[in-house]
Design a protein around this nucleic acid. Structure first.
Lengths: 205, 205
DNA sequence: TTTATTATACCAACTAGTTTGTTTAAATTT
DNA sequence: AAATTTAAACAAACTAGTTGGTATAATAAA
């Protein structure tokens, strides 16, 4: 048994994520990370063999948290599965609640941060982000298709792209929220998505 | 008088913007810009006294183009001002058309790129982005308030945040579009905004 | 019309500092 | 004893920014 390196590695990941969301990945130097974590260069390169390895680890951890939130919202709304529209609406509501209860302004999304400096990362990371976003698309598609079985829509709606609207609003709301320095933008924008769903699915068969 | 420097400066701005949208600002080195523009360092620093001055010039140029697009859409839809809902819908349609007719995948938005490395820029640039986004909010607020005078809404809608939804969807669609490498996401998502407006404002007084 | 002047535009080479990443040896924790 | 961390020095590549000089073209004076 040697000593436990997990606290150090976790600290690197936590502080790096905050720095990357504020400065971008290329705009964050390893020295900055060392300063924030109060560790040494040796310790950093013991845990990550290169800066790009840190990039991978960061996005993978973010994707795991992201998926955990998705799964949690699915789980929490499972009791509503007999009424797929209620479930869809409550699914969105879960994220509204999550964003409302945040004490500080939400720092943003690592996917978006990476997307705007794509070229610096390898194909592996870009594919990984693509898959992560696709998971949201697939999940919303499933929720929507269940609603469609029991509800009709007044207007003709493109359901495939409607599934993307969730992440679209989330990502866009982060940007506008940060730009205007108004943390409550995120919850309010998600609320519009919920209202949109309510208006689309008006009557049961 | 010496020779005309405008083509050089324009080339720097054009190529820099493309590089920044792909690599981020910190992730773009001046040497990279020199390679793309086939000019020398001396010429670069003749036109921009620092890299940060380039950042300012880039965002200001982007903001000008952004405002020009906004004004153009307002102008093009002015003939519909007697029916404010038609005008609002056509206003959105203008951007759908714009995004549909683009030959290549739209490269993204410089505001968003900067927002995810805010810390590197001065307060001046951040305030500037804030004002630029606020202009969209104010414009949509005005269009919406005209609609509200003549139409009623079934559900109670938060009109202030509804004004933000335009930019939210635009920015979010850029990110999802880039992440999935699907250029048509942008037009499709804007189409949902249009449908949302249609559903909100159902009946005239 | 030629010549000199001047403001602008640009180039090539250089500098000072920063970056990621390496190395080594000792110290600390389990 | 094994795994983790420190400390400090180091290198190679890259970074933003500077310097001194040159080219261009319009203008003014001869």
């Amino acid at each position: 048994m040697g000593r436990d390196g997990k606290p150090t590695k976790d600290k690197i990941l936590t502080e790096s994520k905050a720095l990357v969301l504020a400065n971008g990945f290329a705009g964050t130097s390893i020295d900055q990370i060392l300063e924030r974590t109060s560790i040494t260069k040796g310790a950093f390169f013991y845990h990550f063999k290169s800066k790009n390895e840190l990039a991978k680890a960061l996005i993978k951890e973010h994707a795991m948290e992201d998926k955990a939130e998705l799964d949690q919202a699915l789980e929490k709304t499972e009791f509503l599965k007999d009424d797929p529209l209620d479930r869809l609406l409550q699914f969105v509501q879960e994220f509204i609640d999550m964003m409302s209860s945040l004490p500080a302004p939400y720092p943003g999304c690592l996917y978006a941060s990476y997307i705007y400096e794509t070229q610096n990362f390898g194909e592996e990371i870009n594919d990984f982000i693509c898959e992560s976003i696709s998971l949201w698309r697939a999940t919303l598609e499933a929720l929507l298709s269940n609603v469609l079985k029991e509800y009709n829509t007044k207007l003709e709606i493109d359901m495939k792209s409607l599934a993307d609207l969730f992440k679209v609003i989330f990502e866009g709301a982060f940007i506008v929220s940060k730009a205007l320095d108004e943390p409550d933008v995120i919850a309010k924008q998600l609320n519009h998505l919920k209202t949109y769903f309510e208006l689309i699915f008006e009557s049961k068969y």
